[in-house]
Simulated assay, not measured.
Amino acid sequence: MMIEISQYGPILRFLMGRTIGEQTVYTMACYLVDGLLIDSGPYHTGEEFLAALQDHPVEHLVNTHHHEDHIGNNHLLQTELGLPPAWAHPLGLSLIRNPAPWAKKMQAYRQIAWGEPEASQVVEVPNQIQTAHYLFDVLHVPGHSPDHIVLLEREQGWLFTGDVFISERLNVVRSDENVNDMIRSLQDLVQEPFETIFCASGAIRTDGKKAMQAKLDYWLTLKEQCQSLHRKGYTEDEIINHLFGAESRLAALTEGGMSRANLVHSILQEV
């Protein structure tokens, strides 16, 4: 396993992933600020993450959403560090308390990269989280998942985005993502006062507002193009070929879990 710790002012980033051979696959990042741990990482990195936290006190844990790479070590940290129940959006509570039904259905790449999370304790996140030095507004931003939240520290201009932002021109999504909901969430988010975004991918962008707006603009353009081609009678496969040339290689690697077909299909649920 790979875990790298980096410091950005008062914020610690724990970048982690499973190493297969000499390659680390599907890295993700958790953040610790003022005793608040944002996400707990994938199950496969548990023991290494626990060791990495030994010199960094954790008081509370919040999950941005229920996916396995974000809740994988909830149970371990609650058991070994005595953490109270994690905070999460109400729509994610049952999925975190009992992940087995959905985790058993994960594609092979998710099983290999992150592993199945154990059941853990979780309660509804408050509208604001107050730490010793910071106040975080909790904003519901469905799209990547129905229960997704982000944390906004208005005075500092920080936004902890979870999986809301990966890149400006993202053209593959998961099969269970709702792109139209994500567009609406992005439209709301760009109205908020932030500049630096801390992403679950590990990216930290000081031009976060500009980057978020660029993603929104790109997806609005894609939506318009997809709907226009659909009205002309194009099939979804023909739209993919027209806009992108071909399907992404990720589609085969993830058994269709991440693809351009998912993006186009999701957009066309609203025509």
Rank of each mutant, 00 (worst) to 15 (best):
A52C: 02
G21V: 03
A211L: 14
S120D: 02
Y109L: 09
V264N: 07
L243K: 00
M258C: 11
H75Y: 05
Y43Q: 10
D237K: 02
N262P: 13
S266W: 12
A113R: 05
L263R: 04
R154L: 14
K215P: 10
M106W: 11
L189N: 05
H230V: 02
K105R: 09
G245D: 01
K210R: 15
L76W: 00
V123C: 11
N73H: 05
S259A: 15
K232H: 12
R249N: 08
N241A: 14
G157D: 13
E48S: 11
D163H: 08
Q111V: 04
F198H: 02
I183Y: 07
V150D: 06
T19Q: 12
Y109G: 05
L151K: 13
E168W: 09
L243G: 02
H67I: 15
H44T: 05
A86Y: 03
S175I: 04
F14M: 07
L81F: 13
L135T: 15
H265S: 15
I267L: 14
V125L: 11
L152F: 06
A88C: 04
Q227C: 05
T24P: 02
R231G: 08
L263C: 06
Q128W: 13
D55V: 02
E118R: 02
K209C: 08
R18C: 06
G46I: 04
Y26K: 06
I11Q: 10
D176W: 13
T79W: 04
G257F: 04
P10A: 12
L76T: 00
M28V: 04
A86W: 00
I204N: 14
V138P: 15
K223H: 01
G41Y: 06
D147H: 07
I129K: 08
A88K: 01
T131F: 12
D237F: 05
F49W: 02
S120H: 04
F198W: 00
A200M: 06
T131L: 10
L253Y: 08
I5S: 09
A132W: 07
S228A: 03
V122T: 06
L83P: 02
V58L: 00
